[in-house]
Nucleic acid binder design. Structure first.
Lengths: 148, 148
DNA sequence: TATTAATCGGACATTGACATCCGATTAATA
DNA sequence: TATTAATCGGATGTCAATGTCCGATTAATA
């Protein structure tokens, strides 16, 4: 239902949020998120083109978030790599339906709207802050931060 | 987000529900739903394998619904051709997450659950009964049924 | 200025979704 | 029993998503 690319992008952004505002190399993100390095590179290029991350070439370079984790929603990430396509006009091209979707397509579009709504209301910061026994990308919940 | 095949299957089942309990030929369904005939044939075969429709070869044959429209949900149709895959275990294979999804994957799975929930609550009969200015697969709302 | 560490972007390979075609099969009926 | 109307299922084609590889480019620094 969601593409592999969306899953990869979310993992990557999640790691970047954890490390924020530090930048990370593609290599490092790939290792932590278990995404094929070469493909992740393409995904990150997409995120960069759409203003979610910025990239810096050369020594000391890497990828970092453009926004802070509390300003960045899951929806923005999803839409950057694989936009949620709402149904705006009748897929059969029926003239009389136009903007006014028939009940069938209305139900489907409502489902899409629900996903969009849910994703738009969740920031990366919220995902990372949520108290839980399992922490994104990590085998254990980070206890007290050791040091930096 | 939803596959072309899901869209086609919903259209086909919708027409079958309108004609229910009559059976229709693939050719006829294809014409009304504007789906490529040969491909629709494959989609219908899938629906038949999964017990949504039954098919009858030979003269006077065709495709018909197994259930009545008020017993058949959108979810059953969707799941028959392209099942909504919930996230049951950590996609990264992290041992400690197991059943217990991290907040990131929990949000994504919640979105899937929402779609599943919505689709499971809508029957084909409801879709066709809903008062509206646009009727599924048709340019005009069927006024008084002419005759049969 | 040479070296090193990093991303960029183009070419290519693989796979699955979407789509087409057609001979085989099935069933009604003249 | 021959004809006709219908689905079935296998072979094939096309294209986008996924994934790999590598030379070009960029920037820090010794």
């Amino acid at each position: 239902m969601f593409s592999q690319t969306v899953e990869y992008a979310l993992r990557a952004v999640c790691h970047l949020a954890i490390q924020s505002p530090k930048s990370c190399t593609t290599e490092e993100i790939a290792k932590v998120t278990k995404v094929p390095t070469a493909y992740l590179s393409k995904v990150l290029q997409g995120l960069a083109r759409n203003g979610i991350v910025k990239s810096q070439r050369g020594i000391g370079g890497g990828i970092s978030l453009v926004k802070t984790p509390d300003e960045l929603t899951i929806l923005e990430v999803v839409d950057a790599v694989d936009p949620i396509q709402r149904i705006t006009t009748c897929p059969l091209g029926l003239k009389s339906h136009g903007e006014n979707l028939c009940p069938l397509h209305k139900r489907v579009d409502d489902a899409l709207a629900g996903v969009q709504e849910a994703f738009s209301k969740t920031t990366l910061a919220e995902v990372l802050a949520e108290p839980t026994t399992s922490f994104p990308l990590s085998e254990s919940v980070p206890s007290q931060d050791v040091d930096e």
